[in-house]
Design a protein around this nucleic acid. Structure first.
Length: 405
RNA sequence: GGGGGGAUACCAAAGUGGCCAACUGGGGCAGACUGUAAAUCUGUUGUCGUAAGACUUCGCAGGUUCGAAUCCUGCUCCCCCCA
C-alpha cells in the first residue's frame, strides 16, 4: 500500500468537515503512517436503530469511504450494545432501547445499504456488544470514575434538558462512556461523527489518554439539512432523501431543496471532484435551475446509474413541468360497456386514503380526467371499446383507465 | 419518604356537562403561482354516506346523567419540587 503525501491526503479529508480536533495531531498521524506504511484506524460508530439510510447518513459514510480510498482502515462499529442503552444525543426524549434481536436485524439492513457507499471488501465490521457485553459492574464503575458529573452536564443536550426540567436517566450518562470505550478497545486513530457527536468523540480521547493509548483525532462533519431547508435531515421530520428510494423520488426530492442548499449538497453528498466545486458554486448564482437539475441528476446517478437518472429527469419534466401523466402510470382495465363511479375507481386503486379524501380533493379541483377537473362525487364513467382515459389524482398520482372488450 | 402537576386527533396545545369531530400552531394534502415536488398566498385535514345523517375518537375500565373530552370511582403510565 502506498500512501499519498500528507498534504494531498489532508485536502481530501478536509472536504466538508466542520472541525478536526486537533488537526496537528492528524498531520502527525498521517506522517507516521506514511513513514511506517501503516494505515490509520478510522472508526465510525453507527446506531442500528433506524435502518433506513438517507443522504444525511451518507455524509459521514462518504467521509469514511474517502479514508478507505486513501488506503486507511475503515472500522464500522455496529452499536449493538449501545443501541440497547439508547443514545440520547439530539433527542428530547429518551430513546427506547432495542432488543438484541432487533439490533441484529437492523444491523444487517444497515450494512446492506452502507455497501452502496463503502468499499465493502475493505471494511472491518464489528459489534461493540462483543467487548462491552462481557464487562462487569466493577469495570463499569471504574470506567465511570474517569469522568465527573460536571463534565457530563457540560454536554449541550444534557444541560438543556436539565435546565428545562426534562428527565435525564442515569444510564444516559453511560452512553458516551460506552462509545469512548470502543475507542479504547480498538485503539482508533480517528473517529468520525456529526457535530452533535463532538462531546462523545472527545470522551473517547479522554478515555484513551487515561489508558495510555495515543488519543484519537475527532473529525466532525456537518449535519445535513433536510429538504425542508431548516432541520437536519431525518426520517422523523420527513425531510429526507433515502438512498434506497426509487430514482424518480430521489430526483424530485433533490430538486425540492432550497437553493442555498445546492452547494452543501454538492460538497457533502456527491462525488463531483473537488476541483469542480468552485465552478459549481458560481453556477448556482447564474443558473440555479440547471445547477439544481445537475445536482439531482448527480445524486440519482450515484445510486441508480446514468440511465435511470436520465429517465428520472425526463419523468420529472413530463409530470411536474408539463403536467402530463407519465408513461409508467398504472393501467387499470375495465370491461367495455360497464359503468363505474369515479370515486369507486379511485378507492379500488388505492389512490386516496378514504372516500372523504377523494371528495375533498374533487371539491378542491385536484382530480381530473383528460385534463377536465371532476368535482361531482357522483361522476361515473361509461366505458366503451377502445377508451383510454388519463386520471390524475393530486399532483403525483396517476392512472390510465382503459377499456377492454 | 413527602408534596404538586399531567395523559386530548400525525405532533404541539386549547377546551372543565349540551353551541365539540373538538380553538389554534406545526406537519400533511389540494389549488393558484413558479426554474422547482422551493418560497408565497388560499383552501382543506376522523370513517361510511351523492346527501340528510349515522358511527367511532379526547390514557384504560367502570359509574352518574336525558346528555360527558368535561363530574365520580378504580387502574396504568409520565413529569416536577422537597428530603
Amino acid at each position: 500500500m502506498s500512501f499519498k503525501s500528507v498534504d494531498e491526503q489532508l485536502s481530501v479529508i478536509k472536504r466538508g468537515t466542520v472541525e478536526i480536533v486537533p488537526v496537528e495531531e492528524l498531520k502527525e498521524k498521517l506522517k507516521k503512517s506514511l513513514q511506517t506504511n501503516t494505515p490509520l484506524k478510522i472508526k465510525l460508530g453507527v446506531d442500528p436503530t433506524r435502518p433506513d439510510l438517507h443522504l444525511g447518513h451518507s455524509v459521514i459514510l462518504r467521509k469514511l469511504r474517502q479514508f478507505q480510498d486513501l488506503g486507511h482502515e475503515a472500522i464500522l462499529i455496529i452499536g449493538g450494545f449501545t443501541a440497547m442503552i439508547g443514545d440520547p444525543t439530539g433527542q428530547n426524549k429518551t430513546r427506547p432501547p432495542l432488543t438484541e434481536r432487533e439490533v441484529l436485524e437492523n444491523a444487517e439492513t444497515y450494512i446492506e445499504q452502507a455497501k452502496k457507499i463503502l468499499d465493502h471488501s475493505k471494511t472491518t465490521i464489528v459489534n461493540n456488544n462483543d467487548w462491552l457485553g462481557p464487562m462487569g459492574f466493577m469495570d463499569v464503575i471504574q470506567l465511570s470514575s474517569r469522568l465527573t458529573v460536571a463534565r457530563m452536564i457540560e454536554r449541550d443536550d444534557f444541560s438543556k434538558r436539565y435546565h428545562n426540567n426534562e428527565p435525564i436517566s442515569l444510564h444516559e450518562f453511560l452512553y458516551p462512556l460506552a462509545q469512548g470505550q470502543d475507542s479504547v478497545y480498538l485503539k482508533s486513530d480517528v473517529e468520525l461523527g456529526g457535530t452533535d457527536q463532538k462531546f462523545n468523540l472527545l470522551v473517547g480521547r479522554d478515555l484513551q489518554r487515561a489508558e495510555n493509548i495515543e488519543p484519537q483525532v475527532c473529525l466532525m462533519m456537518p449535519l445535513l439539512v433536510g429538504t425542508d431547508g431548516s432541520m437536519k435531515m431525518s426520517k422523523s421530520y420527513d425531510n429526507y432523501i433515502g438512498i434506497d428510494e426509487p430514482a424518480n423520488e430521489m430526483y424530485g426530492k433533490s430538486l425540492s431543496i432550497p437553493d442555498d442548499l445546492i452547494f452543501p449538497y454538492f460538497e457533502l453528498v456527491t462525488d463531483v471532484p473537488a476541483e469542480e466545486l468552485p465552478a459549481l458554486r458560481e453556477n448556482i448564482g447564474k443558473d440555479p435551475r440547471n445547477t439544481k437539475h445537475h445536482l439531482a441528476f448527480t445524486i440519482t446517478r450515484m445510486y441508480h446509474g446514468e440511465e435511470a437518472a436520465a429517465a428520472a429527469r425526463k419523468h420529472f419534466e413530463e409530470t411536474v413541468i408539463k403536467k402530463n401523466i407519465p408513461d409508467d402510470a398504472p393501467v387499470i382495465e375495465f370491461k367495455s360497456g360497464s359503468e363505474h363511479r369515479l370515486m369507486d375507481i379511485i378507492a379500488d386503486a388505492g389512490l386516496t386514503g378514504s372516500n372523504g379524501e377523494t371528495k375533498r380533493m374533487m371539491k378542491q379541483g385536484g382530480i381530473s380526467i383528460n385534463e377536465d377537473k371532476i368535482s361531482d362525487p357522483n361522476h361515473s364513467i361509461q366505458f366503451s371499446e377502445g377508451d383510454e382515459l388519463e386520471l390524475k389524482v393530486g399532483k403525483r398520482k396517476f392512472a390510465r383507465l382503459v377499456s377492454a372488450s
